[in-house]
């Protein structure tokens, strides 16, 4: 493989990263080729020693995804981190997917349940006093407020558990990070 082929494959594998991040990474490998040439090695030798550019791109993308998650805990960075980890093949999908799906589904369910309860509480608070519900207007007002407060609590707890859950996945992936190519071959064989 020539230097150009290697860098093209690497860039293709990194294409969903921000342009500045790609430029940083590509500069590292360009320097590596230049240093190799200075040490009297051919492009093919350097590329051979570097390893598979597509696999390197996957690892670098995972690293970037995890960093984004650590920097900002947003839903989109959580999705990026989880998918980057899956792309790395660091999680055994067949074993873990049902578990992950179940937990993620439960969390989503709790979240929407909380949203629904909040809206319900709001409706009870606003409309209850005029509907002649048993217990009178005060009960409707207090009940509506209580329901809204409870739903906010549930939503906050759900968010905390979700962050903890994604952290757990990232931690697990790092533990199983495949930095050496032979490791990848052996474990997938």
């Amino acid at each position: 493989m020539t230097r150009t082929e290697f860098l093209t494959k690497l860039k293709a594998g990194l294409s969903d990263l921000p342009a500045s991040a790609i430029a940083d990474i590509v500069a590292d490998y360009e320097t590596h080729f230049a240093d190799g040439a200075a040490a009297g090695r051919t492009e093919a030798e350097v590329a051979q020693a570097l390893g598979d550019p597509e696999r390197l791109a996957r690892e670098l993308r995972t690293e970037a995804g995890m960093k984004r998650w650590e920097d900002s805990k947003t839903p989109s960075s959580a999705v990026t981190a989880v998918f980057a980890v899956i792309g790395l093949g660091a999680l055994d999908i067949l074993v873990l997917l049902p578990i992950v799906m179940a937990i993620a589904g439960t969390l989503v369910g709790f979240f929407f349940g909380a949203v629904g309860a909040f809206i319900g509480g709001g409706a009870l608070f606003a409309a209850g006093p005029f509907m002649g519900l048993p217990g009178g207007a005060a009960a409707s007002l207090l009940g509506g407020l209580g329901l809204m407060a409870a739903s906010v609590t549930v939503a906050a707890l759900t968010a905390a558990v979700t962050i903890w859950f994604v952290n757990g996945i990232v931690w697990y992936a790092r533990l199983h990070y495949r930095l050496l190519k032979p490791a990848l071959n052996v474990q997938s064989a």
Binding site: I25, D28, Y29, H32, V46, A49, L50, G51, D52, P53, L56, E59, L60, E63, A64, M66, K67, E70, R174, Y177, L179, L180, K181
Partner: peptide, 16 residues
């Protein structure tokens, strides 16, 4: 006997 290319993901991780 480590693959040379793996140094870059590793350095980024250690930097993170």
């Amino acid at each position: 006997g480590m693959g040379e290319g793996t140094i870059y993901p590793l350095m980024r991780r250690m930097q993170t």
